[in-house]
Design a protein around this nucleic acid. Sequence first.
DNA 1: AAACGCAACAACCGCATATTT
DNA 2: GAAATATGCGGTTGTTGCGTT
Length: 195
Amino acid sequence: MNRMPNTRINLQEIEVRKGPWTMEEDHVLINYISVHGEGVWNSLARAAGLNRTGKSCRLRWLNYLKPDVRRGNITPEEQVLILELHARWGNRWSKIARQLPGRTDNEIKNYWRTRIQKKLKQADMIQYKSEMLPDNPSMGISQSNYSSSTLADYSEPNPTTSQGSCVTIFNTDSINSFWTIDADFESSMQSLHGH
DNA sequence: AAACGCAACAACCGCATATTT
DNA sequence: GAAATATGCGGTTGTTGCGTT
């Protein structure tokens, strides 16, 4: 770092904590917000006596500590919604999150990256088989929903791995628009819709 | 039991935009 | 109106835990 020799160092700035939050920090933040409310994060951090940036406090509160935050166990309905909205809006995580009560942009983003995006790599080999496009309105999927640049692939169940059949749909205008629905998921959706 | 690889997730960073001074 | 500060977003990284070798 190109710090000039006589440059003053702001000790408070250096001592700002990073990394995982401790239970004690969580309690301080929760207690402070329960009394004073949320927002004005930089001054909140100072007033609460937390050696954290305002951004860090905001993130911790909105993603984990806020009472109505739901974490884990993305339901099939939520999965479908995420797929639909991502197909429509791309990586607009906060916008997508607003449609899923209790879910945060960070969680949806992580979910997408860890569960879905890795499959994008496999999409390199996808071939256009329009006749295979599923037409299943109960799942919000129908060929007519897609532009002519929509590609789809349908794979039969793998006899060696017993993996179910798989439908993959993505839009070449935006490779981020990508759907994969495996057989188990499909059957769970059918039961949800009373089929 | 140890080492390794990988998936999942929490949290940080940089940037753009909004708000305040 | 300009500068400073705060907020929000999306990309990325570091850590952890679990399964496999």
